[in-house]
Amino acid sequence: MNIFRLLGDLSHLLAIIILLLKIWRTRSCAGVSGKSQILFALVFTTRYLDLFTNFISMYNSAMKLIYLVCSYATVFLMYFKFKATYDSNHDTFRMEFLVVPVGGLAFLVNHDFTPLEILWTFSIYLEAVAILPQLFMISKTGEAETITSHYLFALGSYRALYIVNWVFRFYTEGFFDLIAIVAGCVQTILYCDFFYLYITKVLKGKQLTLPA
């Protein structure tokens, strides 16, 4: 464990908590893409199947459980409890356009052709593109609530910090995982446009609006 990975995990945890609290306290999931949340729940489910077979540390197991519980709780709030506030008209990205190619790629490019490893690879590739429905929804509505932009900033920062962690691990341990690195770079690049808007607008107290 290194400081970059720890900060990355905490940023990821912060993002998940921000979103869950936003939905719970405002009793509304307006502006949030339910499809992205379903994809994130799928990412954690396919990645953490080894939760009970591979014990790495209390921290690792605890975080996996928290991520799983929070992501399913978010999906539940969006599609059941606060379903009336879910903006399905703007959340129209076709999830199958992501899941099918990612599933195929996981079969073709992986470290080990075993079920657990293919599912792990699937989760890595899927996580890289899981935010697309959310970014697509914001581009359609042309704006995002400030709390939602903070959620996206924390979520985008997590994988950016992981990239720094991978550079650090490469130079200190000689460790690198090309699949995670390539997917992590793609994932972070998808946020660049949003990062620019967040820094130039939200941090100046303005509403996050996309140029129509």
Binding site: D50, K64, G174, D177
Partner: peptide, 10 residues
Amino acid sequence: DMDEEFHDEL
């Protein structure tokens, strides 16, 4: 690419 036994990252 170290063929690690399992993935230790979240």
